[in-house]
Design a protein around this nucleic acid. Structure first.
Lengths: 332, 332
DNA sequence: TTCCTCACTGCATGCGTTTGCAGGAGACTG
DNA sequence: CAGTCTCCTGCAAACGCATGCAGTGAGGAA
């Protein structure tokens, strides 16, 4: 550990023959400095390898330029995609992402959010986890803008970016019905999630509109092993559904695996399958999963702009649910 | 924006009737405080919702408790897994992960690393990107420990955690040969990566040991579309390989898709396929990909302990390459 | 009682910046 | 040439906390 002494603005100032203030101003866009000193300072800074200490700046200005991101699991490929997009979009705006993993138990989330607040983050994005209103209050008290990503809260206070999940469920139902299927089942995600409730509500609405009822229902909790068990239970009988709406693609892969590999059923011959999200692998020929596409890019763009507006003091209201589309592949 | 004034240790001190120092000590494990004042302080802190400002502490102590993680792409499922594991492991140690996305061009990495340094991170993990030795120097000059994850540098100076990629390549070759295949091809990853070089070296060694040469070789750059094109080129002829070692699972999925869906070849009937990594989806029946397993958990554990040792001032040398194993499924 | 020890506490300083304020130096006008 | 303006610069005071140092008091030993 050749711990070279840290170089501060003072070192640069001395070398350039100016004051610390001058150095600071050179690195502060929009500050008043003459070109002459700017050059001297930049030269000295470069020679010494100086870069302003973001943390010190953060203390003084109160803006840390870091955004906390809470995310529960990364095994559902939708979230890595989102994380990548989010991080890139925020980096473009001069922010960076501090990641916090949280199993989706509520307690855990509270705890994690507290930890984040310790870092004086400028904003907080909660991806697919719920926030108690108590916690929301604490955040607001700290002056930290929060936006919920792909989940909304019953209490309407919070900023939330979601797709039009109800419409998505409706599209799924309509499509399966248009295929002539009549014994239609649903494998649900986690019932604590607004996405699940909305998707299912839209789906049921579609069934009702066609005079159909739900033929079977099982719970998958948005987890792969659970979804596979759900599929096994649902298809344990000869009188099984001829179509299933699975609440997200990730589970749908597991369901399709069970149907084809364990039960010898053909998709879509014996049973049509439709998912939700349109993760990249849904397009892979091995699955070729028909699904309801969430526009991840639009969701991210919306999230970032809402968050930044709020950070800059603009009062913002939750944007309208983002449109979803049916992507027809061969599974339905 | 009801920007409530931020509550500082001074507020707590006043309410508890003690000095700021006392408050600070209560929140500093191992400091000398009487139980009586500790209780008073904790009470006041809780009542006010006070939590120490990590950034202010960081300035003073020089330890920010944040670890920078540079990662190029998240679409290869190996990395989300790693990110999740890393973040969890570090959180357990009281650290948090600041994410930086970098396309894998070298310039970009330099730039990104500079940005990270601005945050006074306590350590840096570079996942699958290379670090120029110039940059490495800058990090060392800043006193920031760096560890390369799943990539090593020619210059032996840097701490690097890798699997035994050479052995992995060797295992892949041996397995294909044991299957009686003779026209064996290779779809390579990015040639700038040490992983690629080592895997291929081991693979070639295995072929040579059996008196075989490489039947065909194409470049996939660790990217899905490139890998598919590579597969198309390689199988454009009736006289195509009867086995292929693909440099990672992610590309292998694409290759398998091309073989089965576009070219009507059967796997492993017409061509045996073996990948590298053992990402979760390799086990999915739709692919059932035989592969060389990298122990992500062990890699992460090793990375974290090496990094923390270095942070705590212990001189550390690169750990030995971690063992890999052949996971036999049905694709080979 | 007196002295010493020890556990605790407060004071004051410093970490590396930004920024309001006031002063200095030109540049320009008349 | 004096006066005014503009532009730039340095000073010093924050930001919220940790920590060495000196000082307080209580308790024990003699």
């Amino acid at each position: 550990m050749t711990t070279t002494r840290k170089i501060t603005s003072l070192d640069v100032a001395k070398r350039a023959g100016v004051s610390r203030s001058a150095v600071s101003r050179v690195f502060t866009p929009g500050a008043s400095v003459s070109e002459r000193t700017a050059i001297k300072v930049r030269e000295a800074a470069h020679a010494l390898g100086y870069r302003p200490n973001v943390l010190a700046r953060a203390m003084l200005t109160g803006k840390s330029k870091i955004i906390g991101l809470v995310v529960a699991y990364l095994d559902n490929h939708f979230y890595p995609t989102v994380l990548e997009l989010l991080s890139e979009a925020l980096e473009r705006e001069g922010y960076h992402v501090l990641v916090f993993m949280a199993a989706h138990s509520a307690d855990d989330v509270e705890d994690v959010v507290s930890q984040i607040l310790d870092y004086q983050v400028d904003g907080l994005i909660l991806a697919s986890v719920a926030l108690s209103s108590d916690m929301a209050d604490r955040c607001r008290a700290s002056g930290v803008p929060v936006v919920l990503f792909n989940r909304k809260l019953e209490a309407e206070g919070e900023l939330a970016v979601v797709s039009d999940n109800r419409m998505g469920g409706r599209l799924a139902a309509d499509h399966l019905i248009s295929l002539g299927r009549t014994r239609i089942g649903h494998i649900a995600g986690w019932e604590g999630a607004s996405t699940q409730r909305d998707r299912e509500a839209g789906f049921m609405e579609g069934l009702r509109a066609a005079g159909l009822g739900l033929f079977a229902r099982e719970l998958g909790d948005y987890r792969l092993p659970r979804a596979k068990e759900a599929a096994r239970r649902m298809f344990d009988t000869p009188d099984h559904p001829d179509a299933v709406f699975v609440a997200n693609d990730y589970m749908a892969f597991g369901v399709m695996d069970v149907l084809r590999s364990e039960l010898g059923l053909s998709v879509p011959g014996d049973v049509a399958l439709i998912g939700f999200d349109d993760v990249p692998s849904a397009a892979w020929p091995a699955y070729s999963l028909t699904t309801i596409k969430q526009d991840a890019e639009a969701m991210v763009t919306t999230t970032v702009s809402a968050l930044l507006s709020e950070i800059n003091g603009t009062e913002v209201t939750s944007p309208a649910p983002l449109p979803v589309t049916l992507v027809r592949r061969t599974s339905a």
